[in-house]
Design a binder for these strands. Structure first.
Lengths: 159, 159
DNA sequence: TATTGTTATACTCTATAACTATA
DNA sequence: TATAGTTATAGAGTATAACAATA
């Protein structure tokens, strides 16, 4: 047996590997991928409420509380009450959070470069275009990938 | 902000989406992705011991016991003692297991086709070639992707 | 009454370690 | 003593549900 793998299999295999490698790299900044994703979400659109962020990331609001708690204890984000509606917190990056985001950006570029090691520049460009088309056709356009919530046992083989 | 995503990000995003879609499809066969992966591993190389399968999949042997238990209860695989070394079990597919593998194969093809919906045949071929090159350069050649074990919190964002 | 944020609880999944049998 | 398989335990991580404050 051992048929040649489908593109779907390769995409799952490589995507999983990429996520693991990224996790390994950001761990050196004492961050988990969900924490890095939250920082990124706050950086892209500061000042939103936790509910709004949770809706965008497709994760339960209760999970964000713990994430924000932790990042706030470390001085990377801050909550500030909205005086117009005192139920809401606005979540922002601190100066330290912005500095860390710059480091995460460097890590992400290194990660991308290492992953595409086997491809030449023109091939990388072709790949990027094909992947963008898939992301668009699968409606993954938001820049937040659906794996923010638990993959858990849904990860795994793809035949 | 909102820089255009790197290929690494797109690969993680699409790979996660692909894994979720595959999970959704095999769930209609009452299978989890790890179960489907185990069936596939047994189909490719029948008669191996649980330890050997565990080593290949990079998962603790104790986890395989539960997986094999469940599939055996459902009549999809069978254990048979090795008379030469009575410590070992040989794991094989049953007739029902082989029939189910055929259905899984159909599901995988449908899955692959749906995922590549936005690409024309020539583009699909180019993509497959580029992905194969990445898998090779990242040493993911075995046909078993590294996400067999827990992704858990390592899943998530990729900046 | 509806919504934001929070806390408490329960559940799923996985790995680690201890145990039995065969060699 | 080493290895295959098994069982039992504990831990991490998540979601669900109940609660407090504000609108």
């Amino acid at each position: 047996m051992q048929a040649s793998p489908t593109s779907a299999f390769l995409l799952t295999q490589i995507g999983t590997h990429a996520a693991q490698e990224f996790a390994r790299r950001v761990a050196e900044l004492d961050l988990t991928p969900p924490q890095a994703g939250l920082l990124r979400a706050v950086a892209i659109e500061p000042g939103r409420s936790q509910q709004a962020i949770a809706r965008q990331l497709g994760t339960p609001a209760t999970r964000l509380v713990a994430l924000v708690d932790d990042l706030e204890r470390r001085g990377l984000v801050q909550r500030r009450r909205n005086p117009d509606d005192r139920r809401l917190y606005a979540v922002d990056l601190t100066e330290a959070g912005r500095a860390l985001m710059a480091r995460i950006g460097r890590v992400a570029r290194e990660h991308d470069d290492a992953l595409l090691d086997g491809l030449e520049p023109a091939e990388r460009e072709r790949l990027r275009e094909l992947l963008s088309r898939i992301a668009e056709s699968q409606q993954l356009t938001s820049g937040v990938h659906p794996g923010y919530r638990a993959l858990g046992s849904t990860a795994g083989h793809d035949c």
